[in-house]
């Protein structure tokens, strides 16, 4: 199987079968927090996709050239958190300097990503699965896309719930949790498909 087909299958299975939010339950905090409007959900997920892709690449390099040679893989979590935090800060500065328009669109979401567990999750999963550099980057990118798919779908439903006639006890957050559960169950249907 050529590398290209392999990568396409990897990203498809990440987006649908092993969806980060709805199947692996990573990044639940922003999934519930910034999903009230489709536009903000889209902004957040674009920022997450960007950071996850870059973080996959950087953490792979740290793992391969720093942690493994010195035999301290057990410090993974600490090192990865450090890398991600620095990366987010740096990306924020660069965007603010060179693209104020993009900064205004993503600006408020970027600092939130530092503590997004989906980003740390993708870095750790890369190591666990033993992916090489190119696989890691593709996995990170499609992980971001899977986050986008989940949160945008959810935000679309929540926008409609705003005007729906909901029983008083379920209004607000309870119905959001029920909705999230139903969407996650729908995504379970994909795990019947094997790639």
């Amino acid at each position: 199987m050529s590398l290209f087909i392999e990568l396409v299958l990897l990203s498809l299975s990440t987006i649908l079968v092993n969806n980060f939010v709805l199947v692996k339950f990573l990044g639940i905090c922003p999934f519930l927090g910034v999903s009230k409007k489709v536009s903000t959900a889209l902004g957040m997920s674009l920022a997450v996709t960007f950071v996850m892709t870059v973080a996959s690449a950087c953490t792979y390099l740290v793992q391969a050239f720093l942690l493994e040679p010195f035999g301290i893989e057990y410090m993974q979590t600490v090192a990865f958190i450090l890398v991600i935090a620095v990366l987010v800060q740096f990306v924020e500065m660069v965007i603010q300097k060179f693209s104020p328009a993009l900064y205004n669109a993503l600006g408020i979401y970027l600092p939130l990503i530092t503590t997004n567990c989906a980003v740390l999750g993708v870095a750790l999963l890369n190591v666990q699965e033993g992916y090489d550099f190119i696989h890691s980057v593709v996995f990170g990118f499609s992980g971001g896309l899977s986050f986008m798919l989940g949160i945008v779908l959810f935000a679309g439903v929540r926008e409609r719930l705003e005007t729906a006639d909901i029983p008083k006890a379920l209004q607000g957050f309870p119905i959001a949790l029920i909705t999230a559960g139903l969407i996650a169950m729908a995504f379970l249907g994909f795990s019947g498909m094997k790639f």
Partner: peptide, 27 residues
Amino acid sequence: LIPVIILGVLGLVFGALLGVAAKALKV
């Protein structure tokens, strides 16, 4: 000492990088 030194140096390098970047990219 190995992890302490490596992570410490990593932190220092990153910190220095951010410090330089903050000055260079100041808006």
